[in-house]
Write a protein that binds this DNA or RNA. Sequence first.
DNA 1: TTTTTTTAGTTGCAATTGCAACTAAAATAA
DNA 2: TTATTTTAGTTGCAATTGCAACTAAAAAAA
Lengths: 150, 150
Amino acid sequence: MSKEASLKFHMNLGMLIRSAHNSMTERFVKNVFKSGLDISMDQWMVLGPIWQLGSPSQKDLGEICLRDKSSITRIIDSLEGKSLVVRVSDQIDHRIKRVILTNAGKQLFYDVLPIMEKTREEVRGQISEEEIEIFKNVLSKIIKNLNSKA
Amino acid sequence: MSKEASLKFHMNLGMLIRSAHNSMTERFVKNVFKSGLDISMDQWMVLGPIWQLGSPSQKDLGEICLRDKSSITRIIDSLEGKSLVVRVSDQIDHRIKRVILTNAGKQLFYDVLPIMEKTREEVRGQISEEEIEIFKNVLSKIIKNLNSKA
DNA sequence: TTTTTTTAGTTGCAATTGCAACTAAAATAA
DNA sequence: TTATTTTAGTTGCAATTGCAACTAAAAAAA
């Protein structure tokens, strides 16, 4: 591959990924706002796993969401500030804080679910299921490639 | 699709994209550092188009890099601070500032090119050319989907 | 047991983001 | 011509990021 071609490829990839991510987040926030609700993409990305897992630790959430633990701390702070979740110290291991949805948190989750579904449709548009599968697969592989060897 | 399945899909997609982007940037910066050079991913992403286009306006760079104009302003500020580029007012339209590589900028560009190539190899790993093509295609489609209809 | 190391979570920090408000110049309308 | 609108770029701002340093608790080593 020529230097020019490889340059073009790599530049585009990074920029495309960044831009796609920004657009998706922006659209989600817009759709949430239009529905009169109030939750950021980050908060939602944490709320879902809490709902699925029941009472995950913050460490669990960090691993699932692929985020730094300090980011999780702050997102949980904001969710707790809105009374959507509560932190509960683990009975056995007092270092661990388990995060649990309040009733308001569960309600919001169910309210946002159809908005997320709508956003998902808008993001996907005419992209085929097969393409999406490959897309997610490539993303996973990239992450694996970069996290394995130093 | 069940609510659970669709939830899972969307959560993962956003998180995967974010994480892949972070990992790629981190790896690039690490490789640059190991080579004793000094340039951030953002600076590099702007440097390439300047090299390709010769003397683009900041607006051009924003469109190519899919970035806000204020981000471009600040990245050019930092490149100018390192004497890698200079701003030159357009002779005809005095609103426009054209960005031009200095000799040091050109030198750095050529020095970083093989590092970018190496990073690209590490990012791609065993992912096939075909998968990468579909991957980029899906990214472009997603961006198009979200920028067309309000 | 006591000491050391590891782990979970929090906080301080400096860098980066895009939006919105702004300046200055050009294009268009009046 | 003069007045208005649009455009290119800059700056202020508040929010968000991950790293590094920190606290407190648990696990492992002594």
